[in-house]
Design a protein around this nucleic acid. Structure first.
Lengths: 291, 291
DNA sequence: GATAATCGCTGACAATAGTCAGATAAACTG
DNA sequence: CAGTTTATCTGACTATTGTCAGCGATTATC
């Protein structure tokens, strides 16, 4: 049975490497050799320090130097000396470079939508791709502090509310819940944290400042495809760090005993159950943690 | 929402290309440049005609020639002139070549099991990988006629029986069903057909010869990850071809009205409902088709 | 403030991959 | 059987990628 699982995994690898042959060559669709194209693309993804680019693309310093000079000659990239350490250099796209990146993006988008369009069950395929992408990308997650009204934050929140309304017997209506003021979840009073993989959010958590000597954790959510992989712990650790950085030393949160995984997590990780501290109708369990 | 789907698809691509960088270099783990390694591997996969190899690897004729000569010099491959067309050549692995392939296989197996071992929900990951692999590999399906006792056939049949026992209200017990004699599903009386993707079966169908002027289609099954993509039709077309080749001109089958997708398919594709023609307790619908 | 370490650059190669124009032999076509 | 097509191979290049040693300039270390 294990050999069967290995065979399935290898079949997957074969399928995607066969498929992504087409993807790799789309880099080349721009009529540029792979090396410089990858560098241009890395810069377009926001990588600036040469060190970072070298590390990501795993190319030699001499190689990168030559690629960069080539891209500079073509007027796609400029480099300047870093302010903080004048040994280091920073690469930036010129307008022409940015335009070239955009055309690459368009091409990739087209390819992606072709893949989806060709499939009779795009939703199932997307879910499967999410699971795989998250499984493989766990080490590349990043955090971002955004406004609670950021569209990516809103997307997470909507998914969260939808899930609550399905899990709670009597449904869930945000309007009836204590929806935190945006100001309370914005620095310096609080924060709203997104966990990102590539450019998509896979989880969120809100830190709501109060005037009562503690802050609350609100709207803690991880996308279903990413559950069971210890991401909750990472996200909580990250938001606790943020809280400490804001000078907060007591955290509270409310939850519902229906959300068994969450409750188990809190009990196991230094949270202690306390008395109800707000009138919100949905929660029935309340926790506190000293930082 | 569509842009979101595209972003998810592209995240998937990024994840697997980042991941399969490791995979690609495992080719190189053998200490051989990518080109010759790919050729060696293609031959190891059973590709023999140079034309076929060139086509699969998309490499130039001159290039392949040189790679082959290099592999010959190393004693990993021999080439001989094809019997049917002496312009063509056939490449075969030597023992040393086969051993090198095996060490590559071991490496790939190890990598695959590492990926699985690292994941907290290997079953979900495997299901997702299957779905993706099948979606991407649809054009590479092959058919194979095997004995019904072949382990791959047995794996399909067990999956089929398990599914039936879940879908039928009173469960399913093969022993109580009319389990066809293996001889009836073996040429020249009949056949057992596997639909393969890479080296794994994704579906099966049995053709059971009888002495009553017709043959029966039995044990028609497609793996869940591959459903909704028109594979039933392909598999049915293939087995009808096989039936014709065996000189069969009337097909019958039995099914249960619970299996709504299957019934809808039969009605739509030239099958006409007929009276019960066997005493099997599980089916309640009977079809016939003239070829 | 001397010494060591780091960063990016250039030069000099070596290895690998891709391309094209014939050459040769075999097979197909009428 | 002459002419054409096909499959493979060789030679001659070019393009691309990978590697190493060493050079200035700058920064870290003691």
């Amino acid at each position: 049975m294990l050999t069967d699982q290995i065979a399935r995994t290898r079949r997957f690898y074969r399928a995607v490497t066969a498929e992504s042959g087409a993807l790799d060559s789309s880099y080349l669709g721009l009529g540029r050799p792979l090396g410089p194209a990858r560098v241009l693309n890395a810069i377009g993804q926001g990588m600036e320090e040469l060190d970072q680019i070298r590390n990501y693309l795993r190319i030699d310093s001499a190689q990168l130097s030559r690629y960069l000079r080539g891209l500079e000659d073509e007027g796609l990239v400029t480099t300047r000396i870093s302010g903080s350490d004048s040994r280091c250099r920073i690469a930036t796209l010129t307008d022409a470079g940015a335009e070239e990146i955009r055309s690459y993006e368009r091409l990739s988008d087209e390819q992606a939508s072709t893949v989806l369009a060709r499939h009779p069950r795009p939703k199932a395929l997307l879910d499967a791709m999410d699971l795989v992408a998250i499984a493989f990308g766990l080490d590349r997650t990043r955090y971002e502090i955004v406004s609670p009204s950021d569209p990516r934050a809103q997307a997470c929140l909507n998914a969260f509310y939808t899930e609550l309304s399905q899990r709670f017997e009597r449904g869930f209506d945000v309007a009836k819940s204590c929806d935190p003021d945006h100001a309370d979840m914005t620095p310096p009073r609080g924060a709203f944290l997104l966990m990102m993989l590539d450019r998509l959010p896979i989880g969120c958590a809100g830190l709501k400042g109060t005037d009562h000597g503690y802050a609350e954790i609100k709207r803690m959510w991880i996308t279903p495809a990413a559950r069971g992989m210890g991401l909750t712990h990472r996200l909580m650790a990250e938001i606790e760090d943020k809280a400490r950085a804001l000078g907060i030393n007591t955290l509270r949160l409310d939850t519902n005993s229906i959300l068994t995984e969450a409750c188990a997590y809190y009990r196991k990780h230094g949270w202690t159950e306390i008395e109800r501290f707000n009138p919100d109708p949905y929660p029935d369990l309340f926790f506190e943690k000293k930082l």
